[in-house]
Design a protein around this nucleic acid. Structure first.
Lengths: 140, 140
DNA sequence: TCAAACCTTCACATGAATGTGACGGCCAAC
DNA sequence: GTTGGCCGTCACATTCATGTGAAGGTTTGA
């Protein structure tokens, strides 16, 4: 089997995305990615799917279910190649809802991340020379 | 049973946080919240737990597992009441790791949310009077 | 005193994202 | 032509956040 440049089998995609083959097949089952097939039945992935898989993993990690990812992915593809075919009013409403949910998540994460960062900064300052155990010792 | 102001049983907390009683008990089992107990065995929640529960739900929804939430929650409590007792080097490393993971999530969400918002704006513009199906119809 | 509406614990069920392994086909190198 | 390393499907196992319901105690109000 010869492979074109920019095309790969599941093993290479797995390595390049640090994602188990099992999961790549799962994402396909969920219709997040749709690889071509070689004559022998092997999956045949385009190089661009490397980024696509990373994007999927990022969104999954941020709490989006595959069901939603599947819906928003096509809208993110090419900035201006808009798919109007599936732009039914209900679909648009769903996407708007999801956009707002993402905004909420961003706010929640930012707030808590900042608080955590503040805590870490404070703890680091405390472990400096010239500081006691950290209890209250105000210079009376 | 009389209840002090600012104290409540599981039913009220459930309503005020829009969270099932089952989940409140689950969060307790995971040691995210630790309610007091009345003489009769009923859980006795402080009013401040309303916000706490919302915070937990937000973080869960953003992809954090309860295990991690349990670790970061105490650091977020009072900005300056820092718990140095549990500030072991390993714990700090864990928190830093988690802070960075949150930053990654924020970036991923922001990028995709913005792209989704752009798509929605474009679709809305397309459904304006004076526009065809969306195909190419440049004013030749 | 009885009923309704709380509360308790226990336990089994589910859906989603994953892991793991069995069993077999394809292909390249020796 | 056999061996090893890919690949395919199938299927069962696990973890986590949740739902659901049973069986029983407590409180409140008619």
């Amino acid at each position: 089997m010869k492979y074109e440049v920019g095309r790969m089998r599941i093993g290479e995609l797995s390595e390049r995305t640090n994602t188990s083959r099992r999961l790549l097949r799962y994402y396909e089952e969920q219709e997040l990615i749709i690889p071509a097939r070689c004559a022998n039945g092997y999956r045949d992935y385009d190089e661009r799917l490397v980024d696509r898989v990373m994007q999927i993993r990022g969104l999954l990690d941020a709490g989006l279910p595959t069901r939603i990812i599947k819906q928003i992915l096509p809208c993110l593809d090419k900035p201006r190649i808009i798919h109007f075919a599936d732009a039914t009013p209900e679909m648009i409403a769903t996407l708007e809802l999801e956009r707002d949910r993402m905004t909420k998540r961003i706010r929640c994460l930012t707030r808590n991340r900042d608080a955590l960062a503040d805590y870490l900064d404070a703890v680091r300052d405390d472990n400096r020379p010239g500081s006691a155990t950290g209890a209250d010792d105000s210079p009376a």
